[in-house]
Design a binder for these strands. Structure first.
Lengths: 308, 308
DNA sequence: AGAAGCCATTCAAGAATTTTATGGCATGGG
DNA sequence: CCCATGCCATAAAATTCTTGAATGGCTTCT
């Protein structure tokens, strides 16, 4: 393969009409350029330029190579420029993934990011299944996933925020009578649960089991935001992240007592690359907006990147 | 500037997902590739790939550089391919120039050439002025010019063909009574001459002077092919290359006695480059078709390229 | 004739690349 | 549990490339 240097020499010679001048342009010596050109001619098997008393001029073969040589040089320069831009968050692309229920959490961060880094192309995939999110990272379909803890240990996680788990119920429901509800009170309560493909399903079951409480599932939905809606419609209560409760929710929303929160973490397959790292910083710094005025708490300062 | 080698490494790593594999693809050793990538990362100031236990994967910055890297490599390869193609007459472009009157001589050669080398882009400029043709070569606006001898000594010329100079006259003109006309007979004859900007003008004058004969110019035209037409229309006689006499010419055409020919030469600014040289060979070999059955004679075999 | 500009060649120094050898780390099988 | 395997990084040596200095040939201009 022809070296880029040789192609630069060809271009410089074409532009200046002389090897000596080209050497000056390239901050090099005349024999060096001469040699590069000779090498290129040997490789192409043709004369690229005619040597004349007052300089050189391109042969048709030289002209033929010239355009591509310019392209090659430009592309190489562009390659390092693109990489550098991505490193400085002024270019490149960032592929995000997140749990479906967290889109509303992520959206304002993305909006703010895009305002500050309009050159970075953002892609967002969402999923209700933690396994699928893990798969996105494993198979390198996403650079970074935002999802609730816990996460398998093979990933690198950065704690980003905490999200409150709340009880939702129809207005006037007995459980909603108190400002904060002990988890034990859910024993036997009619629960709008989640379908197994929704990651919340297994997680809630684990949490209930750990607390020794057994609500009564009356139905299941895969759509996270649907559960509180269904509950408000009178089917029972629902337990879900506060981010799944839409603005203008037509039911009651109550904290648990004690407050119940889960970690939101940024997941990468290893130490985050510069672009992802910067996004993660934004994620933590920018704060996370959650509907209905219930503020998701920012992670404590000591929640740094950690391979669990 | 990033070396092409480093970009190749990046591409190979992206394709194979591992530095070791990439090294195999590149017929190189693993540390060599590793080192190239490290250099590239140093130059771009970012990590291009994340090292993981089972290989590596690109960071966003790596992805950003990847597309351009591929382009650069492709363009570089294309550059040498283009040059090689031009050297073998399977590509490139050839810029021809010729005396206006010789278009009819050149046309069939170009047609045949184009049939055999369809990938070579041919450009043809024409001019009635030898000086302008010389200028095309001097200023590198043309690779090769076909024109009548003589040519200033600074050029390299290759004799290509001989072209007969003929007398044209209205049918029944006294000078046309004989099958071949001695040049002396033109003394005092009414001549349709050429305008000064037409190269034939000065050349004819020189030739007449050398022969000691003085025809009587009755008018002048800059358009070579117009002279025989005007002569046939009754204005007098005309002396011009046989190639300027169109097919179906409505007058008499006579050779001189002895035959009067002029050399047609291919002019280049120096030793012709491979593509031009090949075209010149075609020019000589293919033979030159001339209207009205009067064959232009091929140059003798010993008329080789020569710096006069 | 001499000066100046341009290019090719030669040769030695310097730089960059590659190889060889080695070590750390994680994974998977006996 | 331990070893074999596969991956990458590092270090040092060898090789290869590239460059620079000096020189000579050529042509043109003065």
């Amino acid at each position: 393969m022809a070296s880029l240097r040789a192609l630069e020499c060809l271009v410089a010679v074409a532009d200046s009409g002389s090897i000596t001048q080209a050497a000056r342009l390239l901050h090099s010596s005349q024999p060096a350029v001469s040699h590069q050109l000779a090498t290129l001619e040997r490789e192409t098997g043709t004369t690229l330029l005619r040597r004349e008393p007052r300089g050189v001029r391109l042969t048709p073969a030289g002209r033929a190579a010239l355009a591509d040589a310019r392209r090659a040089i430009a592309a190489a320069a562009s390659a390092v420029r693109s990489a550098r831009a991505a490193g400085e968050a002024t270019g490149g692309s960032l592929r995000l993934a997140c749990a479906q229920s967290l889109v509303s959490v992520l959206a304002p961060v993305i909006r703010e990011w895009h305002r500050r880094h309009p050159e970075v192309a953002i892609t967002l995939r969402e999923s209700t299944s933690p396994d699928e999110l893990h798969g996105f990272i494993d198979s390198d379909e996403a650079d970074l996933a935002l999802m609730p803890a816990p996460v398998p240990g093979r990933f690198t996680t950065t704690a980003v925020a905490e999200e409150e788990i709340v009880l939702t119920a129809p207005t006037g429901h007995p459980l909603a009578a108190r400002p904060a509800v002990p988890l034990e009170d859910l024993e036997g309560a009619p629960l709008v649960h989640f379908a197994p493909e929704n990651g919340l399903s297994a997680w809630l079951d684990r949490s209930f089991a750990r607390a020794g409480v057994r609500p009564e599932p009356v139905m299941r939905t895969a759509v996270t935001t649907a559960a509180p809606q269904l509950a408000a419609a009178g089917l029972g209560i629902a337990v879900c992240p506060v981010s799944a409760v839409s603005d203008g929710f037509p039911g009651a929303v109550r904290s648990f007592s004690p407050r119940w929160v889960r970690q939101l973490v940024a997941v990468t397959s290893a130490e985050p690359d510069p672009l992802a790292a910067r996004f993660i910083r934004n994620l933590r710094k920018h704060g996370v907006h959650v509907p209905r005025g219930v503020r998701t708490q920012l992670a404590a300062d000591n929640s740094t990147s950690a391979k669990t």
